[in-house]
């Protein structure tokens, strides 16, 4: 076995190992705004994509009120009636993802917005129509995030 071939084999082995251990990643976007402004901007972006802010979960203030450290994290739930109706028809277990959750994490002057990670769900539902629905929601969120950054 030549040295080059050995190196190739090692590279393949390492990449296999890395792929096995690589954590899945949700959609993410960041913007230099306050947490409050981020909530307003995301609400507007959701409205631009026919979605509604269902609930803002201020877990930062809820924890502080009970004597815990401020995690600088808030959760937004956004949804649309269409998403609910499609999930009811396509795969009722997808209702567990609705309304869609956005996690807002403030670090200094930047707010990082994360979606839930759709990858494990897509693996669980490899076939249509559930898989298509998940892809559609992910695309909508990507567009919403682009809108949020562009404001």
């Amino acid at each position: 076995m030549s040295r080059a071939a050995k190196l190739r084999a090692l590279a393949v082995a390492l990449s296999l190992m890395w792929a096995g251990a690589a954590p899945a990643e949700p959609l993410r976007v960041s913007k230099s705004v306050s947490l409050r402004q981020a909530v307003d901007d995301l609400t507007l972006a959701a409205a631009n994509h026919d979605m509604v802010l269902v609930k803002m979960q201020p877990i930062d203030t809820a924890l502080v009120k009970r004597g815990f450290d401020d995690p600088h994290v808030r959760i937004l739930f956004i949804g649309s009636e269409t998403a609910v109706r499609w999930a009811e028809v396509a795969e009722p277990r997808l209702l567990n993802l609705l309304p869609l959750r956005l996690t807002l994490i403030q670090r200094d002057d930047v707010v990082l917005v994360l979606s839930d990670d759709f990858e494990p769900w897509r693996r669980e539902f490899p076939d249509n129509p559930a898989n298509l629905l998940l892809k559609a929601w992910e695309s909508e969120l990507k567009a919403l995030f682009d809108d949020f950054v562009g404001q």
Partner: peptide
Amino acid sequence: MNQALKLDPRAAQ
């Protein structure tokens, strides 16, 4: 909730 968020903010999921 506090413990989970301290470990990893992605616990918010």
